[in-house]
Design a protein around this nucleic acid. Structure first.
Length: 489
RNA sequence: GGCUCCAUCGUCUAAUGGUUAGGACGGCAGGUUCUCAUCCUGUAAAUGGGGGUUCGAUUCCCCCUGGAGUCACCA
């Protein structure tokens, strides 16, 4: 079978983490089987229209490296489409839905409903109070064809409802197996709204069929509406696709991942300095793991290893701590050139004071201390400006102010007497300073601590040798001199 | 509340009838070390409860409990 999957988000203005994983799994499944992956925009709710949301979605998908074979694309900033099954935006397919709804009415599988929202709302409240199911009471199903025609001609704007038959509905899900639901539990769902737009239920079924989608991969929250879709497929006489309902991604309190409890927008993580490949890797492992003893996978490897039937059934808490760890792993394993490219956009103003050579040195030293790319700014600061610090910080443990000054004077003397080329080599700086310490019979701490603080202005930093290497001879000596002066006053 | 889904360390997961129940994050304790970070070593930590089936259940079945999702002219 030629496999075809789709990612069908509604354009909300950002890509939800959960949607990212749904997109990823659909993508992985299609690519693993050398099938087709398409993007479709589900924008049938015009009350939720967001300007520029489609463009933003396309850009985010591109940044994440999830490419698709069919769907809307951005060409020179303009929206275009690729693929033979378009349009791929539901608001451009209204005609199709109307036709199909009409067909269902003619077949007796759907009917017009003229009930006012007010009446429906009251009925629902009453049902809730008496603890009865809040289903539509089928008032309009009992209308005669004459009555329907008369009200249509009178200009009333009805909705179209699916007529659910008696019995029960069973469907197969790759992840969950067989699921059965009694039809009496299912509402006569609205298919076509009064404004002529379809609801999700009509639109997905029509589009998935017309676009040739074979596998429907989506979140677990859709499971209870599958029977409605099955009825639609049957009414149209279409083959039912294969379903795979993914477990939910959860907040720490186990509820469905939502705003309020942290960031859910992929774009937000990207601007915070998380790497697309790390985010993808992390999210891929929320519900799926090829072996159980390995965590780092490239997209290629994920495609190779992906298996829908090995996807977990239970929800997974989104753990930022583990994401942080993974992002750090990716940053540390990155070569300097790449890291520099990736970090540059996050540098902002701090970058202007920096030439490429020095930035590269800083990155080489600070790479192992970074969790996200945004941190680059604070890691760069001590190298481009002197950080103010308390003189007391210069004194090593139980050593004294006088001792610290003496040691710094010694180091200053040593370094200023050395050939300038020594500063081009971290290892050389280290050897020289350590030899000096040994020759004098000192301990490392009383010398290196004040030296490091003098150079970094901070109690935590890279080693004094690394800082000296980055700062260069002149600035290193200047900072040492400043510290000595500081201790003398 | 009805219906549906789910249930292994705090978290992400591995093990589908036989393992000392494994790995990772985080925690804790060490090591390396001038500090932080990295790196390395060690350690605590789980099969929700009760019945079955079986020589033997994390694993299969049932019940309970717990959690979640869903009950719109939103997706």
């Amino acid at each position: 079978m030629n496999i075809k999957t789709r990612f069908a988000p509604s354009p909300t203005g950002y890509l939800h983490i959960g949607s990212l994983r749904t997109a990823l799994y659909s993508f992985l499944f299609a690519r693993h089987h050398a099938g087709v992956f398409l993007l479709r925009i589900e924008d049938t709710d015009r009350t939720r229209y967001v300007e520029g949301a489609i463009e933003s979605l396309i850009k985010t998908l591109a940044r994440m490296g999830l490419d698709y074979d069919e769907g809307p694309v951005l060409v020179d900033g303009r929206l275009e489409e690729k693929g033979e099954n378009g349009p791929y935006t539901q608001s451009a397919r209204l005609e199709l839905y109307t036709e199909h709804a009409r067909r269902l009415i003619e077949q007796g599988d759907a009917y017009y409903c003229f009930c006012s929202r007010e009446r429906l709302e009251d009925a629902r409240k009453a049902a809730e109070l008496s603890r009865l199911p809040t289903k539509y009471d089928r008032t309009c199903l009992r209308l005669t064809p004459e009555e329907v025609r008369a009200r249509l001609e009178a200009g009333e704007k009805p909705v179209v409802r699916l007529h659910i038959p008696e019995g029960e509905t069973t469907f197969e899900d790759i992840i969950r197996g067989s699921v059965t639901i009694q039809n009496e539990q299912i509402d006569d769902q609205v298919l076509l709204k009064a404004d002529g737009f379809p609801t999700y239920h009509l639109a997905v079924v029509v589009d998935d069929h017309l676009m040739g989608v074979t596998h429907i991969i989506r979140g677990e929250e859709w499971i209870s509406s599958v029977p409605k879709h099955v009825h639609l497929y049957r009414a149209f006489g279409w083959a039912i696709p294969v379903y795979a309902h993914l477990p939910l991604i959860l907040n720490p309190d186990k509820s469905k991942l939502s705003k309020r409890q942290g960031d859910v927008a992929v774009e937000e993580y990207l601007t915070k300095g998380y790497l697309p490949e790390a985010l993808l890797n992390y999210v891929a492992l929320l519900g799926f793991n090829p072996t159980g003893d390995r965590e780092i996978y490239t997209l290629r490897e994920l495609i190779e290893a992906f298996d829908l039937s090995k996807v977990n059934k239970s929800g997974a808490v989104f753990d930022v701590q583990k994401l942080d760890w993974m992002n750090g792993m990716y940053i540390r394993s990155m070569d300097l050139g790449t890291l520099m490219e990736r970090a540059e956009p996050f540098l902002g103003g701090a970058g202007k004071a920096l030439d490429a050579e020095r930035l590269k040195k800083i990155l080489a030293v600070e790479q192992e201390r970074m969790t996200t790319l945004t941190e680059i700014v604070e890691h760069v600061r001590p190298y481009v400006e002197s950080v103010a610090y308390d003189a007391a910080l210069l004194v090593w443990k139980k050593s004294t102010k006088e001792d610290a000054r003496a040691k710094l004077e010694g180091v200053h003397e040593l370094l200023s007497a050395m050939a300038p080329q020594v500063f081009d080599d971290v290892a050389l700086i280290e050897t020289e300073v350590k030899r000096y310490i040994e020759d004098k019979g000192f301990e490392n701490g009383p010398v290196l601590w004040p030296m490091r603080v003098a150079l970094s202005g901070s109690q935590n930093s890279a080693s004094p040798f690394q800082i000296a290497w980055i700062l260069g001879r002149e600035e290193t000596l200047a900072r040492l001199a400043h510290a000595i002066e500081y201790l003398s006053s």
